[in-house]
């Protein structure tokens, strides 16, 4: 079922990641939910082609962090820039910037009243005003890539969770984004469907897509990430290469977290 277009790269760390320019930059970002300080002076820079995996205990602010990057969550202070442009507060400027930032949600959020193919085509046609025939071709290619081309005329509710999430990835890719955000993309999936989604993501990483991935999938982090960012209590506690982070975590919080998840 999963895509076979890309041989799974054993060394997906792509050279561009080391030299790429900063694409997504967060500077002194703060956010509160009422009295809760969910993001505390966050500084993070993601370079073009880099795959950054954000991990941490629940409630650490990692999902919120991910959602601030396309301003689904507004921030209280600090700045966020995407390819050098500060995120506009609202309106057409923000919409345009969002169209260049792909997002994949935990709960898929496919448009329930549209077919699979329509889901993938809607953005390019309505937002980018591209020609339907061109978009259809690209959409079908993407659906083939994620392995659900044969479901193109079905509605989202008729697909399994894993299939829906792969369509959601295709929908985001159809906009030809500069960066992809993944907000716990496998957390709502049945265990047997997690790998089909991770395979698509790994192949995407191998192609040099810039990715920011919030996940609990440590295997994916080891396999595909250039950098692991560990968050706890609204702060970035530690960041390192996956190899260094998993074998030699520096902070106590990270050691504690890893001991809890890796022992079973």
């Amino acid at each position: 079922m999963a895509t076979e277009t890309e041989p799974m790269a054993s060394e997906p760390t792509n050279p561009a990641a080391a030299t790429g320019d900063p694409l997504v930059v967060l500077e002194n970002v703060n956010k509160h939910f009422g009295p809760l300080h969910v993001l505390q002076d966050i500084n993070l820079s993601v370079r073009t082609g880099e795959v950054v995996v954000v991990i941490g205990p629940s409630g650490s602010g990692k999902s919120t962090l991910c959602r601030t990057i396309n301003r689904l969550e507004p921030i209280d202070s600090g700045t966020i820039t995407v390819s050098g442009e500060v995120l506009p507060e609202e309106g057409k400027g923000l919409a345009r910037l969002r169209s260049e930032v792909g997002m994949v949600f935990q709960s898929f959020n496919l448009f329930a009243h549209k077919t699979i193919l329509e889901n993938v085509m809607l953005g390019p046609i309505k937002v980018r005003k591209e020609k339907s025939a061109v978009v259809r071709e690209r959409a079908m290619a993407l659906l083939t890539r994620v392995g659900v081309a044969n479901q193109a005329d079905k509605y989202p509710a008729q697909l399994s969770g894993g299939q829906q999430q792969r369509v959601a990835i295709a929908r985001a890719l159809a906009m030809q984004p500069k960066v992809m955000l993944f907000d716990e993309p496998t957390s709502a999936l049945d265990p047997e469907m997690i790998n089909e989604v991770l395979d698509v993501m790994t192949s995407l990483a191998g192609d040099g897509m810039t990715m920011i991935v919030v996940t609990h999938e440590m295997g994916f982090a080891r396999r595909a990430a250039n950098r692991v960012v560990f968050m706890a209590d609204g702060q970035i506690v530690e960041q390192n290469t996956p190899e260094e982070f998993f074998t030699n975590p520096q902070s106590e919080r990270a050691q504690d977290f890893l001991s809890k998840i890796l022992t079973h």
């Binding site: 396309n70 969002r98 953005g123």
Partner: peptide
């Protein structure tokens, strides 16, 4: 569901769209 509107905004649709 809120996620429907969020997904629409995430692909770059304006409020009206």
């Amino acid at each position: 569901p809120v996620g429907q509107a969020e997904a629409a905004r995430a692909v770059g649709m304006t409020f009206g769209q």
